[in-house]
Write a protein that binds this DNA or RNA. Structure first.
Lengths: 225, 225
DNA sequence: ACGACAATGTACGAACCGGTACGTTTGGTC
DNA sequence: GACCAAACGTACCGGTTCGTACATTGTCGT
């Protein structure tokens, strides 16, 4: 069930020179478990005792490394955000024509959110709490949102090539992409139940991904006169 | 601060013939307070004692009428859903051309969600809990989603008039409208903080409303060849 | 007017839950 | 190998929180 915590006697910790005690591993382990718990049950619904129980260590360590429950949640959030930012930085759409680049970007976002439901749910939880933890974390605020730069360059290219219409704010465009991608994960439970439709199968996801891409591209494309 | 609970000695209860005791009023009062609390703090974050304190009656009444905390939450959800369904039924777009009708429908949804953040947040909360309460409530499941019928008729009209392209699923279309509208309220806190933008002012809302309408219309419009 | 039942208030209990006091082990250093 | 700080475990505490037992009042039917 567990994959790699404390597997070997000579741990793979980067910082240390080899020690049977493994602070980094313990922190990682706690963060992983906490991410799942907070994503599953929300901040108030998650129990420190339960997180501790699912950990390889004890509750003591949570307070030792993360100060308190809120500190743990902030760390979990930071981890989640830095994950997507890291991937965004690797985006490279330079060789595609603007329309297809934009479509890829939208579909990439859609795929990422689908592949990381915990991230989506943590963002939901943070929004329920009015983003107070996000406010408290300089680390998250210092992470620059590289996807905006990519989006901006694609958009400019499209405009200068005459295929995109002018006057669109890329933040707004990103919001549209995010909204369409986010909803599919965030509201899956209620929406699929009310409309009696499947939103998780490979086919449904592929269909929806294409729709999201199409929606976004159509929004920026110049209408032929 | 409070507007209309138990204002008069002869209460305004519909069912009764006038009684100093006012079961319907008490229920209403509890539901109103509980809606705000659950929407503000989530299911686990909301406290029964605090809900009771903000009520005109006592905690005892919550358990008397709603059995337990979950029962109260289900009732709150039912109330919230029946609210939007009631309004949907009043939608009438028969006299507008299909494109403008669709735009109105999208903008109407956008406006409704903005005007009812508690509804949006309750849906978020319910999704965090995997829609288990929604599952438990026959009343919600029996509420038919009339907006789909309206959307369907507009879409058919657009297709038969040759202005909309064929092959679009109206449920998918509704999902797009919902997603774009939902995000603006649901993710307002994190998004506005990360992108340092305002999402609540009248101007921002008007701009975004127009974008949402435009996005939806462009998705269904036939591309001119 | 009186019985019966719905409606309501008060006080309390038991489990839960976040957090800590206190003690022990581990590993690097000289 | 002695010492010290970092790393870790156990047991526990005090306040919180959901829920209920018990007592009381109001209202309607007859």
């Amino acid at each position: 069930m567990r994959t790699d915590d404390e597997a070997t006697d000579a741990p793979t910790v980067p910082g240390g020179l080899g020690r049977t005690q493994d602070p980094e591993g313990v922190k990682r382990n706690i963060l992983d478990v906490a991410t799942r718990e907070f994503a599953a049950k929300g901040f108030s619904g998650a129990r420190v005792d339960e997180i501790a129980a699912k950990t390889a260590t004890s509750k003591r360590m949570i307070y030792y490394y993360f100060r308190d429950k809120e500190g743990l949640f902030v760390a979990v959030l930071e981890e989640a955000y830095s994950g997507i930012r890291k991937i965004e930085r690797r985006l490279d759409l330079g060789d595609l024509p603007p329309g297809e680049a934009l479509r890829s970007l939208a579909e990439f976002t859609f795929d990422y959110q689908n592949a990381h439901p915990d991230f989506v749910r943590l963002v939901m939880v943070e929004n329920i709490h009015n983003a107070v933890h996000l406010e408290r974390s300089e680390r998250i605020q210092s992470l620059n949102v590289s996807v905006i730069d990519v989006l901006d360059s694609v958009y400019r290219r499209g405009v200068s090539e005459g295929v995109f219409r002018e006057g669109i704010d890329v933040i707004d465009l990103h919001m549209t992409i995010s909204a369409l991608s986010f909803f599919n994960v965030a509201n899956r439970a209620t929406f699929s139940k009310i409309f009696k439709c499947d939103m998780e199968s490979e086919e449904s996801l592929a269909r929806r991904r294409a729709q999201v891409g199409e929606t976004v591209v159509r929004y920026v494309l110049k209408t032929k006169a």
